[in-house]
Design a protein around this nucleic acid. Sequence first.
DNA 1: CGGCGTCCTGCTCACATGAGCACAGCGGCC
DNA 2: GGCCGCTGTGCTCATGTGAGCAGGACGCCG
Lengths: 338, 338
Amino acid sequence: MKIDDELLSVRAAELYYDEDKTQDEIGAILGLTRWKVGRLLATAKQRGFIRIEIVHPRARRLGLERALGERFGLADAVVVPVGDAADAAEVAARVATAAADHLTALRPVPRTLGISWGRTLLSVANALPEGWASGVAVVQINGGVSVNRRSGTAAATAVEIARKAGGGATLLPSPAILERVETKRSIESDRTVAGILDLAASADVYLFSAGATTPDSAHIESGYLRRDDMEELVRRGAVGDVVGRYIDADGRIVDPGLDERTVGLPLERLREAARTIAVVSGAEKVAVARAIVASGLCTVLVTDEGIANALLAAVHPPDDPGGSQDSSPRHPSRRTTT
Amino acid sequence: MKIDDELLSVRAAELYYDEDKTQDEIGAILGLTRWKVGRLLATAKQRGFIRIEIVHPRARRLGLERALGERFGLADAVVVPVGDAADAAEVAARVATAAADHLTALRPVPRTLGISWGRTLLSVANALPEGWASGVAVVQINGGVSVNRRSGTAAATAVEIARKAGGGATLLPSPAILERVETKRSIESDRTVAGILDLAASADVYLFSAGATTPDSAHIESGYLRRDDMEELVRRGAVGDVVGRYIDADGRIVDPGLDERTVGLPLERLREAARTIAVVSGAEKVAVARAIVASGLCTVLVTDEGIANALLAAVHPPDDPGGSQDSSPRHPSRRTTT
DNA sequence: CGGCGTCCTGCTCACATGAGCACAGCGGCC
DNA sequence: GGCCGCTGTGCTCATGTGAGCAGGACGCCG
């Protein structure tokens, strides 16, 4: 393209978008036919001279969403733009709101909703509108934080979500990680706990977040893990935790011994479930987000633009060059009952 | 408007602008009629959820230009967006380019072009394309800097502009400010100088920049003024200089004594001229820019978005409440030959 | 309880726009 | 030098879009 055309297209774009002139008028002003003007505008858009941005806390990035969905075989994806957000907390809040919106719009309305807990899910709970659904039974799917923190977080999340849906919350009365396998076994065999785990396994929708392997992890803050435990996990390839279980980049359990002492739904149940919603935001969680989507832990990912871009930027076969499996049904064990 | 409509309009905007869907399709997706979608988009635009930005070094801000033109009775205005420009130098370069563009597009092509000198005008000279016009006589309209700087700047500017237009440059061989009035008088009465000043007074287009009252003013750097001279000028209300003459916020000469010793075209000549182009950029020049446009020193202002906004933000009568004169023909002495 | 004004909705119609097509000018290639 | 393909241009036509209008719902007030 000639340099002159570039200038003209910019001038045309100014007149069209800033001045609300019609392409015909612009043609008259610049001495061009209106078709030429149309073409100039098209190239200007294509070459990125015209930037259209939707600035709203609840705006989403649909292009990224579709790309994510196709790339990782998700049923749905929600990507929140970072835009001019001041800090990570604001982005996290937007992601939580988006997750709440998604949950509210979910059809069919879940009968039983399994949830994990954490800062993220608490935000989601708070962002849900009163009466976002009706008659939803909420059940915790992994052991709680209530041991040596004020019992707030974990229980409050479940109760809030349930209350706003006019349903009941079932809490899992157990620590997240126990010190001895025997204790974990005996807790699980307790009638109450076993019943709750059965209920959790029968949920039709799961909602969970993920933890990074950073020192401010809830597991460390709550005393379930020490810093050097975490460092050891990282050495062994951990990228983060999902419902209390630490996984590597391939979504596999990093430390079976530790996992044996962790109370809650096994990850396989999440991989089988028809609808699992993962809510993840923040640069430190890119790795765990990648593990989640790559290993089929969720069918719906709610995240921020930064993570979405990072997930898509990872090298991937331009046209499946010798890939070991075809791309579409990446997780054949997934039920497809909608 | 209901909160729901806000959400819907954002969703609709996403689909329309990010996804290139038609309003009809969006209607189908969201369960609305296409007219409703159109209205939602309109309100979204109006309420600023949709930001359309033209990102190009040569883009302009036409809305501001028109506002400036109307507000100050300018024949034309060119406003360059600041956008994501890294620093003031980049903005200044864009403004210079815009001025060069304006000059190139000027019709009728000037026969004689009177110019001042300075960093800004040198940039303009460099930004002009070869052959931007043909047969233009360029003449300096104020005394030069050539005294104790290497003779470059002032002369180079004029020569470059003239060369690129295939015309000749006439330099004003005189210091900008003399120490004694008598010297100034005798220089002006010199045949050569007088002839050049006559030529300068007969130019049909003037192009000039403005100086701020900062310590890095060319007048100080060139030794025409001392720092305390400048401070004294500021105390007396000076906001900057135009073709070497210091003016206050109303465009009046601040120090007649100093002005008497300044060689060059009187400001009155600029105010009478049919076409005078002022090129001003940088936050430190807002005050002098305001003085220029408010006192009718230019018919065309080329500037940056920052200055433009500052000029328009100044309080002004919402509907001429007891103003001493009507608003449109603010400078009745201006020739209107165009 | 009824009348009235206001806001909102869905429509018709005129206009703006983009896709697709035919043709002209130009450069490379035989 | 002539032929061929390519790019760029102006057009026709189908579609997308916004202005203006009529009817209905809602709330306010008598």
